[in-house]
C-alpha cells in the first residue's frame, strides 16, 4: 500500500510569511525522518519559490500564495502557486544570475538553488494569470 499524506497552505503575500512557509513544510516533511541536510534543501527551495511569488508574482503587493505539499512513500511533492503577473520568459528567468529586479539586489540564484536542492523542478506560468513552481525530492 502506498503511503500518502497531503497538506495545503494559503498565505498572504507578505515577506514575513516566508519563514512561516518554509517552517511549515519542514515540519510536515519531518514525518519522513529526513536528514538535516535534506530539511535544509527543502527549506531553501520553498523559501526561494515563496519569495519569488511575493516579489515577482505580486510585485510586493497584495495577493495569496498557495503551497501544497504531498508525501507519497519516500517522495515529497511541493507546489507553490501565485495568481500574479506571470513570467514572460521562463527559460531566461531560470538562467543562473539572471534577475528582472537587480534594483532590489536580487542575486538571480533563486531557480538555481531550487534546481540544485531538489530532484526535479518544473515551472508553469502564464502572463497575467500566475505561476506554479512544482518541485520533487526523494527523502532517503
Amino acid at each position: 500500500m502506498d503511503y500518502t499524506n497531503e497538506m495545503l497552505l494559503e498565505i498572504d503575500s507578505q515577506s514575513r510569511n516566508e519563514s512561516f512557509a518554509r517552517m511549515v513544510v519542514a515540519g510536515f516533511v519531518a514525518q519522513l525522518d529526513p536528514t538535516i541536510e535534506e530539511i535544509a534543501d527543502i527549506k531553501t527551495a520553498v523559501s526561494e519559490a515563496v519569495t519569488n511569488a511575493i516579489i515577482h508574482g505580486y510585485n510586493n503587493g497584495p495577493g495569496k500564495v498557495k503551497l501544497s505539499c504531498r508525501i507519497c512513500n519516500h517522495e515529497v511533492f511541493i507546489e507553490v502557486t501565485d495568481t500574479g503577473k506571470g513570467i514572460e520568459d521562463i527559460e531566461k528567468a531560470m538562467e543562473p544570475l539572471y534577475t528582472s529586479r537587480p534594483e532590489l539586489e536580487r542575486s538571480g540564484m533563486g531557480f538555481s538553488f531550487m534546481e540544485a536542492f531538489m530532484d526535479d523542478l518544473k515551472v508553469e506560468s502564464k502572463l497575467g494569470e500566475g505561476t506554479t513552481v512544482k518541485m520533487k525530492k526523494l527523502i532517503h
Partner: peptide, 13 residues
Amino acid sequence: EFMDSSGIGVIMG
C-alpha cells in the same frame, strides 16, 4: 541558521 538567495544579494551588495 538559515540563508537563501536573498542573503547572497545582501552580501554581494
